[in-house]
Design a protein around this nucleic acid. Sequence first.
DNA 1: GTAAATGCAAATCGTTTGCACTTCA
DNA 2: TGAAGTGCAAACGATTTGCATTTAC
Lengths: 148, 148
Amino acid sequence: MDAKRELICTQLKEHGYKITSQRKVVLDAMLAHQDKHLTVEELYQIVKTEHPEIGLATVYRNIQLLNELKIVEKLNLDDGYIRYELANEDEVHRHHHLICDQCGKVIEVTEDLMGSIEKSFLESYGFLVHDHQAKFFGICKDCQKNNE
Amino acid sequence: MDAKRELICTQLKEHGYKITSQRKVVLDAMLAHQDKHLTVEELYQIVKTEHPEIGLATVYRNIQLLNELKIVEKLNLDDGYIRYELANEDEVHRHHHLICDQCGKVIEVTEDLMGSIEKSFLESYGFLVHDHQAKFFGICKDCQKNNE
DNA sequence: GTAAATGCAAATCGTTTGCACTTCA
DNA sequence: TGAAGTGCAAACGATTTGCATTTAC
């Protein structure tokens, strides 16, 4: 986790960006909530506890910067908010999300199961896939149980 | 196409909605642009040629109604607009989109290739998938050619 | 006749931007 | 020191809403 932090700071410096205290706090909040899909407002609330004078615009600017450098990824759950989550450098492609229609829970799927599909797109359409984003809607295990 | 129109009107009536001229014009515009992914603003421009006094709010209200009845589907290309396209009643699941990073072209993929993936989610996570949405980013055939 | 739908304008709300001030390098 | 970054408030822009009027059934 700390190594990751250092790595990202190096990455920022290499691109000519300064390491400000605000930038560090935003990054730390993302590192501390790896499993979450934070809206900017949520991120702002978290960050404010550590750095109360930070402005919302700064949070926006920094999360967008981290997104441009592919350190975080955008996620759209169609609820009117853009969400962000820490990118996993082990993954070439971003992972999938299983979204429960009943309780709204979001389950991460880290395996990339799209390989054969993407290969077929190259064959059928000549389209070379670089990345994908997939959401699966349905009912999670717990809700199935609760429904009997 | 006309049969489809009648079918949808019946569907609306069954749910207790009135068939207003504005509603018909919005529906007709969607039927006439089955292959497109229209923003509400685009839809408004189309609809105004036929029905100049229509209000933007009415277009919003009607496209949302059609979406609730699963007659049209939302599509998010992450460009700040919500887009809509006519649902295909033959498909259980919505189709996929191949989005070219270079020219922005959007290719429809109507085959559902996710069956085995969704089955594996049930096995691994106990998650029962009802629907999915997938976007694949990459380079289309034409752009590959142009790049040599 | 009456509940639903419309049109318009105002409100909402997530996000962006301009600018004077501050800070990292 | 000076360019990059910040904070604030104002601006923006897509979408929603309140309300008086109109319309489908």
